[in-house]
Design a protein around this nucleic acid. Structure first.
Lengths: 246, 246
DNA sequence: AAGTGGTCTAGACCACTCT
DNA sequence: GAGTGGTCTAGACCACTTG
């Protein structure tokens, strides 16, 4: 059926072959040759296509698996990961008795506008480029718990302007994947402490100047482009996080 | 010289050979056969000793390397890691312009006493067992920045009772390794937010009830025993930490 | 039974480090 | 040059999943 690609891997000097192979495979994934959720060809076939031994091919897949791009399942195959989906922000907090629950989302504001200088810097776009700015409140057990300001680069996420926020659901990343074809593969969070301003405090139903945690997130798609800049504020006393060091 | 050990690896059913091999090698390291800093025998020799192929032996060493027990250096050898040594607590904080600096340590109190119930639980010893309790202040650029309460299980760390705190130096883990033969291999930190009590605030030269971060650490030696329980308090506004998620 | 990934082997050759 | 770890190969066999 599909013609064998027969791309022989030629590593650059100083690079090893499985590294070059992994890069080549990553490009094929990013190009959409195997969409998220689908399976790659079998090991033996991929190895033959690129003219390497099985062990070398396996080494390359191991790299991509460690990076979270693919997922290997014994007896079934090698699959392209669907990207982040859960509600990972909650791993930073402990709100009483509500561990596994997905928080409800309420969109407070949605506006296409020129990116602020910080948003432009974080998103890696030119200053003053158009972007979509969202304000979102997330509730657990009826209580407002997280306040978020989200910036999305605009030509890319234009579909969001046409869909009523009520239909967005409670998991933003799943929604972005389904409606805009953007898979969030990786995110970096920065954590700081501060105080809520009056508006923020009102939204979270906390006293003005209450201590808060501010989490600043940059999320990236499969190709490594920054596709989201988000700031999240929440009650500092609900913060709880564990780090293991070696 | 040393007789070849010729321990043939027999993996338990359901376990793979390199896993069993890694466990066996870990035991030999923990038993002190190769003290921290020294080199293990060469790959070919180790593989022969345990009756496995080179690839399998390498796979086992890879596991131990990922776990931080050993460190491999191309062209030189495979070395037992010396354990944690730096001032890792500072990775949570940003005090103005003093990034690489090692903070000065000032021991405020040192006392052998029955472990508090929390200390006993965290150290994994019986309630009321003797332990060594330290209070330590750490300074950067002359300013007090971190306040610490440290619990160490006692028969193990008895040497500390005889050495004047002035001679301890500024890196506790290096000191423990040198004087008590305890290598700290791994640590788990829990981060919470709170307020300083009056005593703590005075020590840190901050207003009473000032917002603070409390880091609770449990540190483990090569064999996996908990050898330290530590609580650290610092100005919440100096906290800054980055997490990468996949 | 057929197809997938996981383990293990035996051996060749390369790259780095020290003397 | 001798010794170390790093890469790569070719092939055998095992374990898991599905029809």
């Amino acid at each position: 059926m599909s013609q064998p690609q027969l791309t022989v891997i030629q590593p650059e000097p100083g690079q090893n072959r499985y590294g070059a192979l992994a890069a080549a495979l990553r490009e094929r994934v990013v190009a959409g040759e195997w969409p998220p959720g689908t399976a790659l060809p079998a090991e033996t076939r991929l190895a033959a296509e690129h003219g390497v031994a099985l062990g070398t091919l396996r080494r390359a897949l191991e790299l991509l698996s460690d990076q979270g791009l693919i997922e290997r399942r014994h007896g079934k195959g090698t699959f392209v990961r669907g990207g982040l989906t859960g509600a990972p922000m909650l791993r930073f907090f402990r709100f009483d008795d509500r561990q596994g629950e997905v928080p409800l989302s309420r969109i407070l504001a949605r506006q296409a506008m020129a990116a602020s200088s910080e948003a432009a810097r974080r998103l890696g776009v030119g200053r003053g480029e158009q972007a979509l700015r969202l304000q979102r409140l997330r509730l657990l057990g009826g209580q407002p718990r997280l306040l978020e300001e989200i910036w999305l680069p605009l030509p890319l996420f234009a579909p969001l302007l046409d869909i009523p926020p009520a239909e967005w659901g409670d998991l933003l990343y799943s929604f972005l994947a389904a409606r805009c074809g953007v898979v969030v593969a990786r995110a970096v969070d920065e954590i700081e402490f501060g105080n809520l301003d009056a508006t923020q405090a009102r939204a979270l139903e906390l006293p003005a100047a209450h201590p808060c945690v501010k989490v600043t997130r940059q999320a990236y798609d499969l190709a490594g482009r920054c596709v989201e800049f988000r700031m999240t504020w929440a009650d500092a006393f609900a913060f709880h996080y564990t780090v293991s060091i070696t």
